[in-house]
Design a protein around this nucleic acid. Sequence first.
DNA 1: TATTGGATCGCC
DNA 2: GCGATCCAATAG
Length: 196
Amino acid sequence: MQVATMRKKLTRAFYDRPTLQVARGLLGKYLVLRKNGRLLSGRIVETEAYIGLRDPASHAFKGMTPRNEVMFGESGHAYVYLTYGMHHCLNLVTERKGYPAAVLIRALEPVDGVEWMIERRGGRKLTDLTNGPAKLCQAFGIDRGMNGADLCGHSIYVQDRGGPVGRVGRSSRIGISEGKEKLWRFFVDENQFLSG
DNA sequence: TATTGGATCGCC
DNA sequence: GCGATCCAATAG
């Protein structure tokens, strides 16, 4: 087998680590979704970490609720929620069971199934398909039905396809009111598919 | 039971 | 800059 064509699915051990390492490590990996006989994928170029009970920007701040309970569960599961009454966001749960933490997927480079993404996104151009957490969920058709899905299963997972990541940048997280001093957003510098 | 505001997006 | 649109979280 050639190295260039290796496609290795990330195991639970990848997610069961400190969240900042996972958020950084996901850059350059490929989010894959198999649904209705279709294969959709995108290269992850922007992530954010939400860590523990003391992070005021996290849904888990102040404890477990029906919405955020997946964040408290086993690592390597999808946490999907609805925000602003109309948009879905995808997170990948990290760290040990009982400790609430996850990585928000904020932007992707479309790779497989681009035609279906364009269809779901109302005919928008390539660079406006998956450059935002809710946009990529719309492009992939991700909704709350996938909340809790096991990333070690066959319908949604992350692959390592090799290749260089590029230079990594860090910043404070976007769209939050508290916790801005933490540089918990990671992105592939100069990438044209980053969110606004 | 009522109120408030949000890890966003797209149009004005 | 602002409205959409719904529901989780909180207060009463």
